[in-house]
């Protein structure tokens, strides 16, 4: 699988990553190489094989519906780049 410049741009946008124009060919080459590696998977017929999402055949455990978290806003916002009146601030959201 060989990725072109516009493929890289599309993926970078999907993943919200700013990539320098000059770095795109390098990424295209690296990502194509990785996809070539990955494409070795197609050598095996996996028809009828159940996908395995987790190493163990376990079920989801459930939590009691009891409030145990208290307000820790100050602590939790101590890493925030910009806040005001308890809100996280971001450039204007337009709907």
């Amino acid at each position: 699988m060989s990725l072109e410049k516009q493929d890289v741009e599309k993926i970078a946008h999907l993943a919200r990553l700013a990539i320098d124009e000059s770095a795109i060919p390098g990424y295209a080459e690296d990502l194509s190489g990785i996809l070539d590696l990955v494409d070795q998977m197609s050598a095996v017929d996996t028809d009828g094989i159940e996908p395995l999402a987790h190493p163990h055949d376990a079920n989801q455990r459930l939590r009691e519906d009891v409030v145990t978290e208290e307000n820790q806003r100050e602590l939790l916002q101590s890493n925030a780049p910009q806040t005001d009146a308890g809100l996280f601030l971001v450039p204007k959201v337009i709907e």
């Binding site: 990725l3 493929d7 890289v8 993926i11 970078a12 999907l14 993943a15 990553l17 990539i19 990424y27 690296d30 990502l31 990785i34 996809l35 990955v38 998977m41 197609s42 095996v44 996996t46 094989i49 159940e50 996908p51 395995l52 999402a53």
Partner: peptide
């Protein structure tokens, strides 16, 4: 960034079955 992009690509519309699902079957 490379790995994020590979992941975004293999999960994206049209590729999920060929990559992610295939990989999960091989995982088994």
């Amino acid at each position: 960034k490379r790995r994020i992009m590979i992941g975004a690509y293999t999960l994206s519309a049209g590729y999920y079955d060929a990559y992610y699902l295939k990989a999960q079957r091989l995982r088994r």
